[in-house]
């Protein structure tokens, strides 16, 4: 783990990660499957327009995917989110998400559990881009809330 950590401290590597996730986003195709819930994020600004889908069963996030027109920060942060939260329980996902939101709000956070998403640690310096860095994550948060409501 310490090896990975030192790599993730290198700004060059972090920049490459963002570029890579932007140019070749992971899980970047929506599914035609009604077991997936979907959240369309398009009303916040006139620029980003993305759809996030998740299959959550018995409190476990089995799959996440997304699609849409968005900037590098929106696309890459959402792509990393899909990698990071897939396979996690909703409780684990909530903990990771809270750390991520704390990081982009320049609060205290646990970097270790954020893995590649640590690449967005400086986004708070460009206040106008915080929305971009959180759009996919907020979609996922809402999907988890919906799934929990459904299970009650």
């Amino acid at each position: 783990m310490s090896n990975t950590n030192s790599l993730l401290a290198d700004p060059e590597i972090l920049r490459e990660l963002i570029m890579d996730h932007y140019q070749y986003p992971h899980n970047h195709k929506l599914k035609e499957d009604d077991r997936y819930m979907m959240k369309h994020m398009a009303s916040d600004s006139c620029i980003d327009d993305i759809k996030v889908q998740a299959k959550i069963e018995n409190g476990v996030i089995e799959d996440i995917c997304f699609d849409g027109v968005a900037c590098t920060i929106s696309t890459a942060s959402t792509s990393m989110m899909t990698d990071l939260l897939k396979g996690k329980t909703t409780a684990e996902a909530r903990k990771i998400m809270q750390n991520y939101f704390d990081m982009v709000d320049a609060k205290e956070y646990d970097g270790d559990i954020l893995e590649e998403a640590i690449a967005f640690k400086n986004v708070y310096r460009q206040a106008n881009r915080i929305k971009c860095a959180t759009i996919g994550w907020r979609a996922m948060e809402e999907l988890i809330e919906e799934s929990e409501k459904g299970n009650e």
Binding site: P11, I18, Y22, Q23, T72, Q126
Partner: peptide
Amino acid sequence: TLENAIGIFF
């Protein structure tokens, strides 16, 4: 460039 546009975050 794409590199420079992302570079502002580092």
